[in-house]
Write a protein that binds this DNA or RNA. Structure first.
Lengths: 173, 173
DNA sequence: CCTGAAACGGACTGTGCAGTCCGCTTACGT
DNA sequence: ACGTAAGCGGACTGCACAGTCCGTTTCAGG
């Protein structure tokens, strides 16, 4: 199963990269042809790996979640839980603001792929920071998510970093 | 120019109603065929009035803005500026949450149609409420808009009324 | 090398959509 | 009532896209 020919694996990676970029830029409306061309392969090659466009979107979203899980794990590995939390939030914000179309992709594929794992990790990051006294104790992970999301989505163009700063200050203990 | 035959005017209205409903439900992806069918006309009739799909979207958005302007004018006509303001915000929220797809339509047609008039009226509603001492003096119309929008967009399903209540309480003097 | 399986990619199909066209119908002034 | 211009709507075109197929190319093991 994992026995994938070298060229196949290389192309698969190119396709995923191109798809991530296209979906990040244009949301789920990006066409397969466009992605295949950007990846330098024929679009038949895309469909061999991902029988359906939705399968490709799904894969990209999963990868995106995995990136955020990675950030969360980094935060958990740090020995300063407070700063780790704030860094984590800032990085996640940076990531999602640099890929505006991906949110629509997540919505598009309804039930999320690996969201459970991500939720679990984030909860850990938050509670660790609270334990260290860096974050007020009366907020829950969901609150953090909603507050941050609202700051990002409602900020005027180019102002989201400032808005995020305000919210983060509000979360400090 | 306003000399429109009776049947033409009737159909035009039906089309606008159907379009408003369709765009509110599905955003700008709603098809002309679907709208024409819902309006009970052939889709040629739609294209005669609106040479382009974008023209139709534009018209619906303009109508939506006009509705909000109407609400603002109602608020300005009330003799209790404070309560008028809070009612106004609640009504606008109710309106936009009942037409989730319209926001994407507004985004779709970039520069907004009659946004200037709306902005002007809202500014009046806010400053009147502030003058009456019902709303804290240190917020600007833009702040109100952003705060309300963020409450609406970030609330979990079915919770937006509660979130809005919190924000409105926060705006009281 | 040489061979067979794996992978490739582009031609092809089917669908759904925006936008056009034109023969038919209907409102309305006289 | 009737003539005509305004209005109608569905057949048609063209295009963009998702998804299929198959003849050709390339990898990898012996």
């Amino acid at each position: 199963m994992t026995e994938l020919r070298a060229d196949a694996r290389r192309n698969l990676e190119r396709v995923l990269d191109a798809a991530a970029e296209a979906f990040a830029a244009s949301g789920p409306d990006a066409s397969i042809d466009e992605i295949a061309h950007a990846a330098g392969v024929g679009h038949g090659t895309v469909f061999r790996r991902f029988p359906t466009k939705d399968d490709l979107i799904y894969a990209v979203v999963e990868r995106h979640f995995a990136q955020m899980c990675e950030l969360a794990r980094d935060a958990l590995a740090s020995d300063d839980p407070g700063e780790a939390f704030f860094d984590f939030v800032r990085r996640v914000a940076e990531l999602s603001m640099s890929t505006p179309g991906l949110h629509r992709c997540v919505v598009h594929c309804g039930e999320k792929p690996g969201a459970a794992e991500l939720t679990r990790l984030v909860a850990k990051v938050v509670s660790r920071a609270q334990h260290a006294g860096a974050v007020r104790a009366d907020v829950k992970p969901l609150d953090v998510q909603l507050l941050v999301r609202s700051a990002l989505t409602s900020a005027p163009a180019g102002q989201w970093r400032r808005y995020l700063g305000v919210v983060l200050d509000g979360l400090r203990a």
